[in-house]
């Protein structure tokens, strides 16, 4: 079992719901301060977006953040180099599009991520059918392959995805790209379907905007991923202290569930 999954299973066994904030690498010169703030605020895993010019699964907020980060010259190497300076033991997972690692070289990319203490990877446009080579490359580097399951995924595919998914299963709450929404969509049904196929921790993302939503979702899921809501705050000029406060409010909501 990959080390990320061992950690996240232990976390679940302890009764704690996982809080996974998402940050875009290189969005601001001091982007790591936001990561540190989130860790102080009670995050359990940090998801790091490595920007791509054509983020097809992202809504306007993360698109904007990706463009700003790219304009600052962010690359896979620069993101990894920044991450190596983090001293926390909170697990890091990377999210990027397949072309970035394809272009870098899959084996080399897995090694670079691992050397930056990244122990999981989410590649949202890498379908199960095309994932063989990347899964193979990640095997020796202890990088967990995290796959998404969507509301449109039928039971057969859920089971096939569950077979290869490592670390945690990313349950997409709705048929949408990343961004705000007012409810948890189909999350409950998606989580139940995944749960029937696997005992891996299941985290819900896509459209989780408020602590209230997070609390509701955590009544049936093992964790929540919060992306656009935080990125929007940073784009609007929030300080690391502001982000820490936001993370604390999510933390409290999850701890009360």
């Amino acid at each position: 079992m990959k080390s990320l999954e061992t950690q996240l299973r232990t976390l679940r066994a302890s009764g704690r719901k996982a809080l996974v904030p998402y940050f875009v690498a290189g969005l601001t010169p001091d982007w790591l301060h936001y990561v540190d703030a989130a860790i102080h605020g009670g995050a359990d895993v940090i998801e790091i977006g490595i920007p791509f010019s054509d983020p097809m699964m992202d809504g306007v907020v993360i698109q904007e953040a990706a463009m700003r980060s790219l304009a600052r010259g962010t690359t896979l190497d620069s993101a990894c180099s920044d991450l190596r300076s983090l001293t926390s033991s909170v697990p890091l997972v990377a999210m990027t599009y397949y072309n970035i690692i394809h272009h870098y070289g899959l084996l080399k990319a897995a090694g670079a991520l691992r050397a930056a203490h990244v122990t999981g990877a989410i590649i949202p446009d890498l379908t199960l059918e095309e994932s063989g080579e990347w899964v193979h490359c990640c095997a020796s580097d202890d990088v967990a392959n995290i796959f998404l399951t969507a509301p449109s995924t039928d039971e057969d595919r859920v089971a096939k995805i569950a077979n290869v998914c490592e670390g945690f299963s990313y349950a997409s709450a709705r048929m949408a790209v990343t961004g705000k929404s007012t409810d948890e969509g189909d999350a409950h049904r998606v989580v139940d379907t995944i749960r029937a196929a696997t005992d891996i921790p299941i985290y819900v993302g896509i459209g989780i905007t408020t602590p209230g939503q997070a609390q509701e979702v955590s009544s049936y899921a093992d964790g929540v991923i919060v992306g656009s809501a935080l990125v929007q705050q940073i784009l609007s000029g929030a300080t690391p202290q502001d982000i820490e406060a936001t993370i604390r409010s999510f933390r409290q909501a999850l701890d009360q569930s």
Binding site: M56, E130, T153
Partner: peptide, 20 residues
């Protein structure tokens, strides 16, 4: 079967679109 013409083609989409 994977939609490949030699080494090109295939299917690289969000899981949400795979069923479609």
């Amino acid at each position: 079967d994977r939609g490949r013409f030699g080494e090109f083609g295939g299917r690289f989409v969000a899981e949400a679109l795979m069923p479609a």
